[in-house]
Amino acid sequence: MTEARRALITGITGQDGGHLAELLHDKGYEVFGLIRGQNNPRREAVTIEFPYVTLIEGDLIDPTSLVRAVEASDPAEVYNLAAVSHVGYSFKNPALTADVTAKGVLNVLEAVRVTGREHSTRVYQASTSEMFGGLDYNRPGAGYNEHSLFHPRSPYGVAKLYGHWIAKNYRESYGMFVACGILFNHEGERRGTEFVTRKISHAVARIERGLQPYVELGDLWPKRDWGYAGDYVEGMWRMLQHPVPDDFVLATGQTHSIEEFLTLAFAEIGVDDWRPYVKQDPALLRPAEVDILLGDPTKAEQELGWRRKVDFPGLVRLMVAHDLQLIDTSRP
């Protein structure tokens, strides 16, 4: 009997961590997840939803704990998904963002290297479209690709750019298999309600059920390339099955505004005009905003055979339906 491949996921409590754990388990992997702290409030939920995941305590800002985690899991693949990942939060906590999202990548790579697994363990680094920053966008209708210039516009984007380049440096310096996935916005039912898409779908469901009168948002005009997280984790896995380590953009090739998301979300509950149910809060505005993000997934489609399956209307429909069901099943 062939021994199951072993994978270690940092950020197991997040949206992508959950989807990826599910995918890897279905593919026959033995899955390990890094979790912070003895009393992490998400521990019980992860244990219930993913009973097949072996949890290991560790922290991206504690290099020793990462060495122990790598030794304990002995992974063929490491997926570094952990980060301070909320753009707005990164403006309020830039130092913590740098420690976790930037230096944490270095700590993960070092843990693999110093344990002697630099040539046997493949590493996935979660890069982000926020590294592009939405500036120098001089090709209307064409998305950012693997050769586009970076100009991050937030502490989160800057920290991710460090993580991206240190990953490439370890690839080139030590011959490590490190693949960087430059993922555009990917959402879904596991997204936290602090993120605008889930904040909207959650609020729409509560408005429909009479539990709240409106939702407070910041800017409504920014445009994003939104896909479904469940599709994107398959792209992560495909990157580590590729013959050589490389960088890949995952995106839909379409961009939509927050107003468009609102229109589709409220339409799901039969509301044609969402304006009476939306209030703009100046406190939610960011010091610097990215106007538009649009990705070009051509390379991933051609070299990895990756395709997104859920389109934008389908994503909104899925999220609103989930949040409506969540309310109904939680009621006595």
Rank of each mutant, 00 (worst) to 15 (best):
G305D: 12
V108H: 01
R36S: 09
V196F: 15
W237E: 11
A83D: 04
Q280F: 06
R198I: 02
Q325Y: 06
D231N: 12
V320R: 01
P140H: 00
Y124I: 11
L109I: 01
H202D: 15
Y174M: 02
T97A: 00
K103N: 10
S148G: 04
V67S: 07
I166F: 01
W165V: 05
I9W: 07
A98E: 11
R190W: 12
L294F: 00
E146Y: 13
M236Q: 10
V100I: 15
K168Q: 13
E189P: 08
A251R: 02
E57R: 14
P152G: 04
L183R: 06
Y170T: 00
Y144T: 04
T128S: 15
G188E: 02
R190D: 03
G133D: 04
E49F: 08
K168A: 13
L240S: 03
G227V: 06
S65W: 03
P75L: 02
P213A: 12
V290R: 14
A126G: 07
E189M: 08
E146G: 11
S201K: 04
G141H: 04
D99T: 02
F150A: 12
K92N: 10
P287K: 09
A111V: 01
R206Q: 07
W226K: 03
N138D: 12
E187N: 11
P287T: 01
L304W: 04
F150P: 03
G181H: 07
R238N: 04
P243Y: 13
E44V: 06
G28E: 10
D272Q: 14
S65C: 07
S85D: 08
S127N: 11
I12M: 15
P332F: 11
D62Q: 06
R43C: 02
V158E: 04
Y52P: 05
G218P: 10
F177L: 05
P63E: 13
S129E: 14
A95W: 14
R206K: 06
W274E: 07
V233E: 06
A205W: 02
A21T: 07
A98M: 13
V290F: 13
I182F: 10
Y214N: 11
I166K: 03
G133V: 07
E3A: 14
H164V: 05
T115K: 04
E194K: 02
N80T: 01
Q38N: 13
G188Y: 01
P222M: 09
M236W: 11
D62V: 00
S127F: 13
S129P: 02
P332R: 10
S85R: 11
V100S: 07
L55A: 08
F248R: 03
T329N: 09
I200R: 00
L34R: 09
L66S: 12
L135H: 07
L211V: 04
V233F: 09
K299I: 12
V31S: 09
G58C: 03
Q280A: 06
L250N: 01
V53P: 10
P51W: 11
D16N: 13
